[in-house]
Simulated scan of single mutants.
Amino acid sequence: MTARRFRPSWIGLLATLVVAAVCLQAAFWQLSRAEEKRTLASDLATRIQQGYQSMASLAVKADPHNYPLEVRGRFDNRHNILLDNRMLDGIAGYHLLTPLHTDEGDWLLVNRGWLPRGRDRALLPEIPAIDGHVTVQGQSYVYSPRTFVLAEDDLTDPSWPLRLQKVEMDVLSPLLGVELAPFELRVAPGATLEQGEQLPRVWHDPVMGPERHHAYAVQWFAMAAAVVIFFVAISFRRRETDNPHIDA
């Protein structure tokens, strides 16, 4: 007859500990992201309830990101900016940013929406001009300083419309000869701005909510447990017990 005894492999133990640690780290990261998403959603809901802000009210906020904003002024159609590598439904394109001179004397970039790039990258899309005095509603947006780009923008000899990989207000302000607000205004998806067909305005990519992160965390915890259970199971080795036969 046979019996089993626990004889773990040190190499197997080390591999199990490494894999389990990676799974646990991923699980706790998912829980952290879930909490960040929950906090972000709560803050955004609170800010939306405050109603439309003015440029003056946002200027004194420590974090002017994601507030409803309404401004009035005139667009500078001579200095459009095309923010490159913006995808929509799998199609490459740009975000169209146009400077707006507000009635209060401020300057800010207005993100009007998405334009398709076309097959020939050398040909820039046609940009519809917006003339006259306008009222623009949307949400403020602050770009992350850690935006990843494949190559830095060459602005030694800029031409307009200006094609960029990332938006940096302190870099664009000298080019425009004005002081830009530290945030842009993303036009509300349902707003009417251009004449005729409106540009697509899909500002928030489909992202995982807190519930999805919690589900992924459970999966990572389960994987860590499965690795440990598998290691324990294979560490029990069979051995023959003493069962001598006596010759008659």
Rank of each mutant, 00 (worst) to 15 (best):
V134A: 12
L185C: 03
D76I: 12
L155V: 07
E35Q: 15
G93R: 07
P125N: 09
L109N: 05
G93P: 01
A233F: 12
E36L: 12
L162P: 05
A15W: 09
H245L: 13
L124C: 03
S32C: 06
P64E: 06
P174F: 14
P244N: 02
I234M: 05
S32H: 15
P64Q: 07
P158L: 05
S54H: 01
R74M: 10
W203T: 01
N243W: 00
S173N: 03
L155W: 08
W220C: 07
H65S: 10
T46W: 02
A129K: 15
I127L: 14
D76P: 11
M55N: 04
R238A: 11
Q137D: 00
M87W: 15
M169D: 09
G209P: 00
M55C: 09
L124V: 12
C23M: 15
G12P: 06
R4A: 13
E152C: 02
W220Q: 00
V228I: 15
P206D: 04
F148M: 10
A27V: 11
D205C: 07
I234E: 11
K166T: 03
V218H: 08
I91A: 14
R201C: 06
L199V: 06
V71D: 02
Q165S: 08
Q219W: 01
L44Q: 08
T241G: 09
L172H: 06
G177M: 10
N85Y: 10
A27R: 03
L108N: 04
S140E: 06
